[in-house]
Amino acid sequence: MAEIELGLDTFGDVTVDGDGRPVPQAQVIRDVVEEAVRADELGLDFIGIGEHHRADFAVSAPEVVLAAIAARTERIRLGTAVTVLSSDDPIRVFQRFSTLDALSHGRAEVILGRGSFTESFPLFGHDLADYEVLFEEKLDLFTALLAEEPVTWSGTTRAPLDGARAYPETEAGLRAWVGVGGSPESVVRAARHGLPLMLAIIGGDPLRFAPFADLYRRALAELGQDPQPIGIHSPGHVAATDELAREQLWPHYRAMHDRIGRQRGWPPMTREQFDLAAGPTGALAVGSPETVAAKVVRAVTALGASRYDMKYSAGTLPHDLMLRSIELYATEVAPRVREELATTAAA
């Protein structure tokens, strides 16, 4: 954990300008590129861009955005948060990311998941009744493609393959994770395929995910797989003080929660619920650099994680506030986290 990777995630949430008006999706995409460039300049390890097919998120083709970022950055690793593999073709996903890997000189990663939104299923002609089998079969095929050898495969969700290969080849392999929300079945599936695990912790105490991390490690060992890293994806926002961070984030986080809640049957979020989530044991890493660093250290220590990605975008949170949050995360949170973990490791 002393060698923790600290990254960022965004879904390309449609933001508002200084007058509270929605920013056009095209500008949001350009802003995401600028945010990633700033993260690279400040030395952060990773930028992950989510895939959505909705009006409130601007990015539906993250690989294209990542390619633009690759052309303007030097060291930051480039990936997704997540790629909805269930409604995509595994060969095309591999080809897009191996191409990104070439453009970025080996910096590409892919985080594969089923996604918490389902708009892509009808959009691309898939039946939600096949939700489980689509992901299981396509992950099986994608894992086979990672070896970059001829693949013979058959299943129920696409035509069989006989000695097929996917191009372009990478120079040193493609790093692929499985993103999960915390179900035991999903954790064991990731272990069965021998892929790193990314835990999406978006609610509750992060420490309640420790049993899933333990299950994953036990499953890897029992299945004869090599040890793999565990990562954490969790929302956050950094400002000069705890009070300022909460006041900046609250109206935009509430707008996002309530918009999605109207579709899913959730009640409106109260300020008390938000403050609890932003508190010492909540999932939201919101506050001053000292507060956010302490929450990151607490979470990665409990789970034995080696990657922490803060989802810095939240609903309509404006671009300038996100840029400032990124700067504080990179220049003040990251050093504190690394120092604390190094001290703990030495002890």
Rank of each mutant, 00 (worst) to 15 (best):
D226N: 09
F274T: 10
H252V: 08
D258F: 06
R307F: 08
P268M: 09
Y253A: 14
L276N: 12
P235T: 08
G224N: 08
T241C: 08
G224F: 05
L284E: 11
K295Y: 04
R262I: 02
P280R: 13
Q263H: 04
G236I: 06
F274H: 07
D275M: 11
A239N: 10
Q228M: 11
I230F: 00
I232M: 02
H257K: 14
G231P: 06
H252A: 05
G279I: 07
K295C: 00
A221P: 05
Q225T: 13
P267F: 00
Q248N: 13
R259S: 08
A305I: 14
R264M: 15
L244N: 06
W250R: 09
T270G: 12
V238D: 00
I232V: 08
E290D: 05
M256F: 08
R271A: 07
I232E: 03
Q228P: 07
I260P: 06
G261Y: 10
T241H: 08
E290S: 00
A305N: 09
A245P: 08
A240D: 08
Q263K: 01
A240G: 00
G231D: 05
T241S: 13
A302P: 09
I260L: 14
I230P: 00
P229N: 01
G261P: 13
H257Q: 15
R298Q: 06
E247Q: 12
H233L: 01
Y253R: 15
S306Q: 14
I230C: 01
H257I: 13
M310S: 01
T291Q: 14
Q225W: 09
A221R: 14
P229R: 05
G282N: 12
P229I: 05
P268V: 07
R259C: 02
D242N: 06
G265T: 07
P280D: 13
T301G: 03
G304V: 07
R254T: 15
L244Q: 15
R307P: 03
W266V: 03
Y253H: 14
L223E: 13
A305D: 13
G265D: 03
G261D: 04
H257R: 15
P267R: 08
Q263R: 05
L244W: 04
P268N: 12
A285P: 03
W266L: 11
S234G: 12
F274S: 13
A283S: 15
